[in-house]
Design a protein around this nucleic acid. Structure first.
Lengths: 145, 145
DNA sequence: AATTAGTCTATTGAAGCTATAGACTAATAA
DNA sequence: TTATTAGTCTATAGCTTCAATAGACTAATT
């Protein structure tokens, strides 16, 4: 499960990406419309700014706005930013590699092999899911089971 | 990331599945060979027994052994048993459905649509990964990136 | 100069994960 | 039948992380 922080971040990003013209949007506006605790949101937006995804403007008329193009911001990036590794095991991550303490031979571990495949497929799908894609998918009705 | 509990469970299951003949294996044997704290392992094995995957025998010569056939035990089942839902969002789970508080219209949520696809692919791969499959995969060398 | 709005530091409460301790129960073998 | 072995159950403790809040501070705009 992704954290609330990540979920809030995605919601805020989609919201900002939908504001066609890049006028700064106040934190309080995002907070209210997306139902995110304001102080919590402030920290999230700061992180997104540090990551180069958003930019901000201070003073009257200030707020946050997209710096990167919506099509260049994907869910893999956002999830890594807030929740760290996407994979199920530390030994199959791109950027957060860590050896399993109890593992005897990583190179021949069947469990690792499975989770490696899962990670690859997951990251592939999450990279395709950029903000533009997400917005365009709204309204795709699906059957759940 | 999966919990240590799940990881321990998988390791214990693979270990038991490898013991061809179904003689009971002592908890302490599994604990030592798989490097799992014994008391913690006891709780895990009990859960696996309650789930019908393992069975146990008390007294001298007792221990745990596979009840289900290794090819009928897959990682999706084990992960759900210990960590709950596999999906990234509560609104795209099979058995743990929960609505996102801040969501306005679930049926048209582009984020949900993405994570729904990810879940489907993930569960599909995890279901294929049964104990027999995992054991047979040992030794598949892979290139990581 | 006043106002507005973002920035930073610290802290708190709740929850979940990991691990441990100890008492209890049941089955086996001698 | 008795000693021993080994699984079962309950409780709890430490730690970490997540989520949220508070308040003081800083900078830009009009």
């Amino acid at each position: 499960m992704i954290s609330k922080k990540t979920k809030y971040a995605i919601n805020a990003l989609v919201y900002l990406a939908k504001q066609g013209e890049q006028k700064p949007i106040r934190i309080s506006d995002i907070s209210i419309s997306q139902n995110i605790p304001q102080k919590f949101l402030e920290a999230i937006l700061l992180d997104l700014k540090k990551a180069g995804i958003l930019a901000s403007k201070k003073g009257k008329g200030g707020g946050y706005y997209m710096l990167m193009a919506p099509k260049d911001v994907n869910l893999a990036e956002v999830m890594r930013l807030f929740d760290g590794a996407i994979a199920f095991l530390p030994c199959v991550t791109y950027n957060y590699y860590e050896r399993c303490e109890e593992c005897i031979d990583e190179e021949t571990c069947g469990i690792r092999d499975v989770f490696y495949e899962v990670r690859n497929k997951t990251v592939e799908l999450l990279k395709q899911a950029n903000l533009e894609e997400i917005i365009s998918r709204e309204g795709n009705l699906k059957n759940f089971s």
